[in-house]
């Protein structure tokens, strides 16, 4: 079975209850042909375990890395990924769209 949004959000609460640092990454804006609509989310815990998706798998790796920073700092971040993005991991969306992903820590 795929993880549904409610399973993803429940996992976030469960991980937090188990004492792990948790971040929530949510697609907030999309331009052009984007793989997942606004509202799609990925939850990440401090071990780097994640559930859900914000793209078709193109940028999840980079989002997880940024999320670990957000878990450590507690400060939310806005990430942008486009096809022309030149990041350290050289990630981008092969579909040609651009997405903005808001990453926030779950605060107890």
């Amino acid at each position: 079975m795929l993880n549904r949004d409610e399973d993803i959000l429940k996992a976030a609460a469960d991980w937090q209850a188990a004492g792990r640092g948790v971040a929530l990454a949510t697609v907030v804006e999309t331009w052009g042909s984007a793989p997942r609509p606004a509202g799609s989310s990925l939850v990440i815990n401090e071990d780097g375990t994640f559930l859900g998706s914000v793209s078709g798998g193109c940028v999840e790796g980079a989002v997880v890395t940024e999320a670990l920073d957000v878990i450590a700092s507690g400060t939310p971040k806005m990430l942008e990924f486009g096809v022309a993005d030149e990041t350290a991991w050289n990630v981008g969306l092969s579909c040609g769209g651009t997405i903005r992903v808001y990453v926030e820590k779950v605060m107890s």
């Binding site: 409610e6 959000l9 976030a12 937090q16 929530l24 779950v106 605060m107």
Partner: peptide, 25 residues
């Protein structure tokens, strides 16, 4: 997101009631 917001969100979803989370980015 505050844990209590997340808990409320999960409770509303479990009860099949719609909610909107408003975030000043």
């Amino acid at each position: 997101m505050k844990l209590q917001t997340l808990a409320l969100l999960n409770a509303e979803r479990a009860a099949r009631r719609a909610v909107v989370v408003v975030t000043d980015v």
